[in-house]
Design a protein around this nucleic acid. Structure first.
Length: 598
DNA sequence: ATTAGGGTAAACATGT
DNA sequence: GACATGTTTACCCTAA
């Protein structure tokens, strides 16, 4: 019969996802997210930074070597012929790699640098500013395993070797130094006559651990911590501060090596600062952008999954008002990256759709769907993720979204396909379920109309279901509570999602935080609503709304809440939500075979 | 172990 | 007869 169907533009793509909606879908999205520009940018930035540091360091070394070779006597080196000093850049590469102490030290410094960078990246991620390519776990890997160890280590070798040689020369001239060029490697742990390597290098320059170079108490020095000299590459241990000072003056006096190290350090710091500045700038731009609704056309809808595609209010052209922008300006957490490059508003329920959850959602899914649907509208529209709502809830939502509060069966179908990518497949299955629910639940009333029959919602009936569900709501309540505390339920779902996407654990915290915050906010909202209006919303989820266990203990057999109280949020939402544009989105048809499906 | 709610499948009826 | 719409039943699963 007259299907007003099918003009949905996105149909084509909708069916191409033969993969299971949940799991496979995630993978797909993951790979997509991997192409996010921010990933590349960050990676490039860091690489660039490294390269620049190398470049500068090399220059420094060259200069120094030129200088040293110009005025130092090669003969002073009893173990290494002078010429070696002059060929460092080229021939040193061919020299057998001797694991010098300084190399080790430098390696550790590199680790420190990497850690710092990682921290930086993590902080960016926490702010939702950085996205990690799921497939690469962490961009840092490429840094730490690629160029850094090789090139930087080589660089450091060059630095240290040249200095050592200089020092050796100098040593004979009254200075002291290490003969690293000696074929017999110095015991790795005796660098500078001391223990193992150290790092702290950058961490000190950046973190300063509360002090500055010129601001240190008698027993506090930026280069001295925990009894260890924190000069880059030095990890000398000292019993007391005085010893350290002595060491500092002797070992790290103003000489070429120290100067070079200092320059390298400066360069590193500059690069990090540069990167920080850039990231700050980016953050600013992002925040600005987010506060000024974008008018840009949204990218072609693609089936995405939770991770890369959670809703965006900004791009939603429809009426659905962004009930809540995820974050306040103070929380630059605007869910970005890994999770999505768009500001997502992941509401609690949406998380539940993550994973292979196939059948029935527990009572917790009876939460009012309006806010969730509205907030995650785009997400559901694009991601083949099963909405965490019962058919009854969805049907009701569909009906209430219309001005007339009534829909024909076919219109309900259309709403489903329009609003949820998930329902663009296996139509026979879910349509049957829709019909089944319409008939089964008394809350759905069939009304004969001029143009046939339409379905309406009997809110009272609908509400009646609530109390019953309340008995089952403890789950929801518990869920809410745990969620508020970033508890097991949520984090489990979230972590599962993360795991799904190969996102390292730490990202769960860093990335998740913002999102979780928004989740918590959403939930709080919901809870507030429940508290303030009882089973407000009247959405079918009311049972779930009972915010506290104590509350539903008494409600199992309570009579339905006053309808009045159900007005609130839901009404507003549903009313505001109605989007005319929907009329243009017809039919994502239709029986794309029953493929795999549920 | 039981119960209730929900999802899925399917048989069947009716109308177009 | 095919299809859409509706109703009903049965079974399964999950959570309480």
């Amino acid at each position: 019969m007259m299907q007003e169907s099918g003009t949905e533009a996105t149909n084509g793509t909708a069916n191409q996802n033969s993969a299971a909606p949940s799991v496979e879908g995630h993978r797909e999205v993951r790979s997509k997210s991997a192409t996010l520009s921010s990933d590349i940018t960050v990676s490039d930035l860091v690489n660039f930074q490294q390269q620049q540091a190398l470049q500068v360091a090399r220059q420094i070394i060259l200069q120094q070597q030129q200088q040293s070779s110009a005025h130092k006597s090669p003969k002073n080196n009893d173990k290494q012929p002078a010429p070696q000093v002059h060929v460092h850049l080229s021939s040193s590469l061919r020299l057998p790699r001797q694991v010098s102490v300084q190399q080790l030290a430098f390696q550790q410094q590199l680790l420190q640098v990497q850690q710092l960078q990682q921290q930086h990246l993590l902080s960016l991620q926490r702010q939702g500013l950085l996205s990690i390519q799921p497939n690469q776990t962490l961009p840092l890997h490429s840094l730490t395993q690629g160029m850094i160890p090789a090139e930087l280590q080589q660089l450091w070798k060059e630095v240290t070797n040249s200095h050592v040689k200089e020092e050796n020369s100098a040593h004979n001239n009254g200075h002291r130094g290490l003969d690293l060029s000696s074929p017999s490697p110095v015991p790795p742990k005796n660098h500078n006559q001391h223990g193992s390597t150290n790092g702290q290098y950058i961490s000190h320059s950046l973190k300063r651990e509360g002090s500055t170079l010129d601001d240190h108490s008698p027993h506090s020095h930026p280069l001295y911590g925990h009894g260890v000299c924190k000069w880059p590459g030095c990890e000398a241990v000292f019993e007391d501060f005085q010893s350290f000072l002595k060491h500092l003056n002797n070992e790290h006096a103003l000489d070429d090596r120290s100067t070079a190290q200092c320059r390298v350090q400066m360069q590193v710091v500059q690069q990090l600062e540069l990167q920080l500045a850039k990231d700050k700038e980016r953050l600013q731009a992002m925040m600005t952008h987010l506060h000024v609704k974008s008018t840009e056309p949204k990218p072609a809808p693609q089936p995405l999954n939770l991770v890369s595609n959670i809703t965006l209010s900004k791009t939603a052209p429809e009426a659905s008002p962004p009930l809540s922008l995820p974050q306040t300006p103070t929380t630059p957490t605007a869910p970005l990256t890994p999770l999505s490059q768009t500001h997502s508003v992941i509401t609690p329920t949406s998380l539940h759709s993550v994973g292979p959850m196939r059948r029935r959602y527990s009572d917790k899914y009876n939460m009012p769907i309006s806010p969730d649907i509205v907030q995650n509208k785009e997400f559901y529209m694009n991601a083949e993720v099963r909405p965490p709502f019962t058919y009854a809830s969805l049907i009701r939502q569909a009906i209430l979204e219309t001005p007339e509060k009534q829909l024909t069966l076919n219109e309900i179908y259309n709403w489903f396909t329009r609003m949820f990518a998930y329902f663009r497949r296996n139509a026979a299955t879910w349509k049957n379920a829709v019909r089944h629910n319409l008939s089964l639940h008394k809350c759905f009333v069939r009304v004969e109309n001029v143009k046939g029959a339409v379905w309406t919602v009997d809110e009272l009936e609908f509400q009646k279901r609530r109390p019953q569900k309340i008995s089952g709501s403890p789950a929801l309540v518990k869920n809410i509570h745990t969620t508020l505390g970033y508890g097991p339920a949520l984090s489990a779902a979230f972590q599962a999602s993360m795991a799904e996407n190969n996102i390292p654990l730490y990202t769960t915290a860093s990335i998740g935080s913002p999102t979780l915050n928004s989740l918590a906010s959403a939930i709080r909202e919901e809870m507030n609503g429940a508290m303030d209006h009882g089973n407000s919303n009247g959405s079918d989820s009311s049972p779930g709304r009972s915010p506290l266990p104590a509350m539903h203990h008494i409600s199992v057999k309570e009579e339905p809440l006053d309808p009045e109280e159900h007005e609130g949020p839901l009404s507003l939402v549903t009313t505001a939500n109605h989007s005319p544009d929907f009329d243009h989105n017809r039919d994502y048809e239709d029986d794309h075979g029953h493929e795999d499906m549920l």
